[in-house]
């Protein structure tokens, strides 16, 4: 018993070391979304393409992506070609034009191609707040039951898509 007490600090040191070591290399910037496991929050947004009011009932019925982007966002420029590629592969992507100007957004889509089934205008960023967006680009993966299953912050690319793809079902 006495020997055990003597070794107690050492045991505590080792166990703390194991805990800290297991946390090393983790991306501390990455936050789990509060929305995972929930439905897409209610919204009423105007479509950039058709100029009509869209609500939750207009959301796709299959699994899809919600992609927040804006013409003001440099990382979205990088991401756009990859989104075009995904759209060609048959991935359904709903675009949210986040805190942006409609005219510039239309021009962007006509110049760079449109990977989105629809683009909704969130000029004030209210829907972004409801989704817990912290910036653009940000992508949510919604499963076929309409439940948010994953959130990715930053641009999508071939590397991270291989893991994100797994959520899309």
């Amino acid at each position: 018993m006495k020997k055990l007490v003597r070794f107690l600090p050492f045991i505590i040191f080792i166990s703390l070391g194991v805990i800290f070591y297991s946390q090393l290399g983790k991306n501390s910037q990455e936050l789990p979304s509060a929305l995972v496991g929930k439905k897409v929050p209610d919204f009423k947004l105007v479509s950039l393409v058709e100029n009509t009011l869209q609500t939750n009932s207009d959301l796709p019925k299959e699994a899809y992506l919600i992609n927040f982007w804006g013409t003001w966002c440099p990382a979205c420029h990088l991401e756009h070609p990859f989104l075009n590629q995904l759209a060609l592969q048959g991935v359904t992507i709903l675009g949210i034009d986040y805190k942006d100007d409609a005219e510039q957004a239309r021009q962007w889509l006509s110049e760079k191609g449109n990977p989105y089934i629809d683009v909704l205008m969130d000029e004030t960023g209210v829907f972004g707040l409801d989704m817990g967006v912290t910036g653009a680009p940000e992508t949510f993966i919604i499963d076929s039951n309409g439940i948010v299953v994953h959130r990715h912050q930053g641009p999508l690319n071939a590397q991270n898509w291989s893991t994100i793809k797994g959520f899309l079902k």
């Binding site: 936050l31 789990p32 509060a34 929305l35 989704m131 817990g132």
Partner: peptide, 8 residues
Amino acid sequence: MVARYGEF
């Protein structure tokens, strides 16, 4: 805030 951004 917590509903949107979590306990964080």
